[in-house]
Design a protein around this nucleic acid. Structure first.
Lengths: 194, 194
DNA sequence: CGATAATAGGTAGTATACTACGAATATTAT
DNA sequence: ATAATATTCGTAGTATACTACCTATTATCG
């Protein structure tokens, strides 16, 4: 169960010529780090993008019967304990843009998985709170989510897994300021002054 | 240079209650691997998604004067040596969906960075070939792309960098079949039959 | 040769993820 | 208290990334 679609075309390359030409990047090791980004798949960004893409595919496959996306489940995860949060806070917790968070919340509201009471204190704020149905939904999906995570990293032994998680977390902590929507979870505590 | 936008709100958490409630995931180490995905940021998928997001942000920042995205630059990279490829081949080379590739190619054509001659042999196929302007564009953007990659991983020492690249590549090789748009670059050579 | 498969491309719809802009409300500084 | 600033949310637009369905063309098999 779950798609099982045969993926697609094998062996491309047909009537087009394969002459190998330009050099591109010319591998100038003289630059800062000596890391080689000449090949598309030597670029960390390419690997990350593709890995993200594959994770989403696996997640959607494992959770296909629930029709839920990783980000949607992330929102429900942070609301699970009953907190009532506004959109900006939700965005910063799950690490997405404010507008994206608003979209996601809207869709979850449409499905009755959360409600959006107005804030009494701040008349600008539109809060979000998980419903009983939402909590039951999370409980139901949880095993599939875990399966997706496990399947995603199933080819790694413990050493490689720990290594990857450690390095990715490190990267995230140091890059947090760059992206939009910095995470509170990774925020440098002392950087109030900027 | 490049934006310098002050990121945003610090200290959320205001008029909403912070009672800590449910257990969620209950940390059942009895499952297959003993890996703990209870926290959102212990999930490889969350880390990957966020890292991808940050890389895109850095890439767009470094390449802001060129108005180009990572995927667009990926297409230009595979076409740089003068190959004439159809959309399906391009998709499989850069690792995106066929439809996404069609979108990207359309935008690059609109900017004159590539042309789309019809295939003489196969009247279905619409090919893509980089223009002289496209090649010059790649040459101009290349340093910014490299800068983006270096900035993205700047917090890693050589050991961590090598480790991450190795593990990510390993993960990709083993997960290639799962995602849509399997990469030729990572295709298992022996699977010709199937 | 003719029916069937596979392949290439297109369109439409949805979700994530941004930017840019504007309106309403809240906070702060003068 | 008033003005300036910050914050919250909204809309609209673009790009990536899919699914689902469609047509046209090519390849394959009986």
């Amino acid at each position: 169960m779950g798609g099982q679609r045969v993926i697609g075309p094998r062996f491309r390359v047909r009537d087009f010529d394969l002459q190998e030409g330009g050099s591109l990047n010319s591998n100038d090791k003289s630059s800062n780090s000596g890391r080689d980004f000449s090949d598309l798949w030597n670029r960390p960004g390419s690997l990350i993008r593709r890995l993200h893409q594959i994770h989403v595919a696996i997640f959607l496959d494992e959770c296909s019967e629930f029709k839920v996306t990783p980000v949607q489940f992330g929102v429900l995860t942070v609301l699970y304990d009953g907190q009532t949060l506004d959109q900006v806070t939700i965005a910063s917790q799950i690490g997405v843009d404010r507008n994206t968070a608003a979209d996601v919340v809207r869709r979850l509201e449409r499905r009755g998985l959360l409600v959006r009471p107005k804030s009494t204190g701040d008349r600008r704020a539109k809060l979000a709170k998980i419903t009983e149905e939402g909590k039951e939904f999370v409980d139901a999906v949880q095993p599939a989510m875990i399966k997706a995570q496990e399947r995603f990293v199933s080819s790694l032994d413990d050493e490689d897994y720990d290594s990857m998680m450690r390095v990715m977390t490190k990267l995230l902590q140091n890059s947090n300021e760059h992206g939009r929507a910095p995470l509170r979870a990774f925020q440098k505590t002392g950087s109030a002054g900027k």
